[in-house]
């Protein structure tokens, strides 16, 4: 598909408004969450419970986003600390 027609895109946005609004709200929340996680692990590797406790987030949410950031090459797993693995931002990302 070449560059879509402006009017057609406008009509499509109107048609999918409910989905788009929901996706945009979700995106906002996700950006905030990812920023908070990245902030925690930019200088030193941390475990999921430590990130969750210091960023005041839920541990399962932190693990979900750490897993996704790892998948998309932004976070790496480092060492083990007790029963937990630690994660840090990938310097090359």
């Amino acid at each position: 598909m070449g560059k879509p027609d402006k009017e057609a895109m406008k009509a499509l946005r109107k048609q999918r408004k409910a989905y788009i609004d929901r996706a945009q709200q979700e995106m906002k929340k996700q950006r905030k969450l990812i920023k908070a996680i990245k902030e925690q692990i930019k200088d030193e590797p941390k475990t999921v419970p430590r990130i969750a406790s210091e960023a005041k987030l839920q541990a399962d949410q932190v693990l979900l986003y750490v897993a996704a950031l790892r998948k998309y090459g932004q976070v790496v797993e480092v060492d083990k600390d007790g029963d937990y693995f630690t994660y840090k931002l990938d310097a090359e990302a």
């Binding site: 999921v48 969750a52 693990l63 029963d83 693995f85």
Partner: peptide, 12 residues
């Protein structure tokens, strides 16, 4: 997770 950890908090 590329390993077995539990989903609630990442504990092995």
């Amino acid at each position: 997770y590329q390993r077995v950890i539990r989903p609630s908090d990442g504990k092995e």
